[in-house]
């Protein structure tokens, strides 16, 4: 992996050059931090990770799958905007790689692929856990990025090149990204304070009464799944026109396993009727079921589902407590 150097005095000029080349989306601080298109280098906010995940730019909240008119189906023209995502943290980069597995490998989802294929991912490495709920170090994340900025020195960033797209960027912006003999050590890639889930194996905990405290504090409001950078469940719905009931469109919306409606089938039967079953399902999908299929945990330890939960249900604490209680027995 090639390592380059970006001098801090060139940082603003570098961002300006990115903006002049294409649309740049980065964390922006308003009332909360969220990903937004930026106009100036000063819009970039790197003090804290975005409260809202980046997934909405690829797996969009509402997507027209196809239009229909009198038994004829037409697929909307799919645009593939060239965009740079700047300032993504390790958790969010890995989250993108997990959604890639779902929407680009298992199924070839043209809507996701079109949004994703011309996107460049430039990361910003956390020097320490940006939130007290983080636990990415416990989730054994991989290096996944086009470029990654490491902010370890007073005068310069070290920039790792992680892909072909990264090489393209390095070449294109070679004026700012200079050769260097420096390397980022494995030690420097660690994120202190983000290892609070030492053992994420929950296979034998399903019937443990320890989950109950989380269930009792759950409103099933779906904040966790909406804020999760990896949750990818959706709902499909047909909308028709009043002037012609055979004309309309099929739309895909974000949905959530926390809802009864999500598992409702014909005859109004609901598979996961109890809040407890729905509560556990999300965590088991994140830490167990996904691994069975893809050999990696879906969860990337960003902690948003805890920080954004109105009652701060901390499933990491709950798991740790269950493990401790089990060890005592």
């Amino acid at each position: 992996m090639e390592t380059l150097l970006l001098e801090k005095k060139d940082y603003e000029a570098f961002i300006t050059a990115l903006i002049n080349w294409c649309e740049v989306i980065s964390p922006v601080k308003k009332e909360v931090v969220r990903f937004k298109k930026i106009k100036n280098p000063s819009d970039v906010y790197l003090g804290k990770n975005s409260f809202f995940p980046v997934k909405e730019f690829f797996f969009r909240k509402k997507e027209t799958i196809f239009k229909f008119k009198n038994n004829k189906i037409s697929i909307p023209k799919l645009e593939s905007p060239k965009r740079i995502f700047f300032g993504l943290r390790k958790c969010d980069l890995n989250a993108i790689s997990h959604q890639d597995k779902v929407f680009m490998e298992t199924v070839k989802d043209p809507y996701y692929i079109s949004q994703r294929k011309n996107s460049y991912l430039i990361g910003y490495h956390c020097n320490e856990a940006p939130s007290k709920y983080c636990f990415c170090e416990s989730m054994r994340l991989k290096d996944f990025f086009d470029l990654m900025l490491y902010d370890k020195h007073k005068d310069f960033f070290l920039v790792e090149v992680g892909s072909e797209k990264g090489k393209t960027l390095a070449k294109k912006f070679g004026k700012y990204l200079k050769r260097t003999d420096n390397k980022v050590s494995l030690e420097e890639k660690k994120i202190p304070g983000a290892d609070r889930l030492p053992d994420s194996n929950i296979k034998d905990l399903y019937d443990n009464p320890g989950w109950q405290e989380g269930v009792d504090k759950c409103l099933s409001c779906t904040a966790c799944t909406a804020l999760c950078p990896t949750c990818y469940c959706f709902d499909l719905k047909d909308e028709v026109k009043a002037r012609n009931l055979s004309e309309g469109e099929r739309v895909r919306n974000w949905s959530s396993c926390q809802l009864k409606e999500f598992t409702m089938v014909a005859g109004s039967h609901v598979f996961r009727e109890k809040r407890e079953e729905r509560f556990k399902h999300r965590i088991y999908h994140q830490l167990d079921y996904f691994r069975e299929k893809y050999d990696v945990d879906l969860c990337t330890g960003c902690g948003r589902c805890i920080e954004g939960c109105p009652t701060r249900i901390d499933f990491v604490d709950i798991i740790n407590r269950m493990k401790q209680d089990k060890a005592k027995q």
Partner: peptide
Amino acid sequence: NDNPVCVECRRNGNECLLEHGKPCLGPI
């Protein structure tokens, strides 16, 4: 529609008003 208001609210990218100390009944 038996889903709480929060489902659409989160999709709309709003901040949770309960977090701002407002007595929002969205979750029920």
